[in-house]
């Protein structure tokens, strides 16, 4: 394992010491490592275990439980397309399929350039703007195929740094 950048080590240390019990920082530490590695690779899991004083199994128990921790490689932008009932009502399916078709990936797949991963997501809490998706912590409202094209083009242009939870 190559050493972590000093800022990240400091950040991890801060996360663990900011709470009463290191276990509370488990998700935060995994977010930070996910941000660093791009996803939670095995090395990231071992790092997290070291920092938190938990076993890799305990962390795996959490990482595989939750939706927003990725144990397999994902693209730079993870597109969470809401597929819950309200968005479904507004033909979310076609938005989802349109995205997969446009990007040329199956559901859950990552584009070859490593930019995008499309995932179906549980209701993201933006139902009044259905159909909706969440990329990079940002909601995209009342989607249409044209709107999706515009979003993809904007992200491809790379003006935005990925901001995942960390």
């Amino acid at each position: 394992m190559s050493p972590l950048p000093p800022e990240l080590s400091t950040e991890l240390h801060r996360l663990v010491t900011a709470v009463d019990n290191p276990r509370e920082a488990a998700v935060d530490v995994m977010y930070a490592l996910q941000h660093h590695y791009g996803y939670l690779c095995d090395e990231a899991m071992h790092r997290a275990a070291e920092v938190l004083g938990m076993t890799t199994l305990e962390l795996e128990s959490l990482a595989t439980f939750y939706d927003y921790l990725y144990r397999r490689p994902v693209g730079r932008y993870v597109i969470h397309v809401c597929d819950s009932v309200v968005c479904w009502m507004f033909h979310q399916d076609s938005i989802f399929d349109y995205l997969c078709r446009t990007l040329g990936v199956p559901p859950g797949g990552t584009t070859e350039d490593g930019l995008f991963t499309v995932l179906p997501a549980a209701c993201v809490g933006n139902c009044h703007n259905a159909p909706t998706m969440l990329i990079n912590g940002r909601f995209y409202d009342r989607l249409t195929p044209e709107a999706v094209d515009a979003v993809i083009a904007e992200l491809r242009a790379g003006t935005e740094e990925p901001v995942r939870c960390k």
Binding site: M54, T55, L57, E58, E60, S61, T64
Partner: peptide, 17 residues
């Protein structure tokens, strides 16, 4: 602490890391 449940819903898996 090296064996336990992983995943959620109907995918829960009991094993090691």
């Amino acid at each position: 602490r090296d064996f336990g449940p992983m995943q959620n819903a109907n995918r829960v898996y009991f094993g090691r890391f």
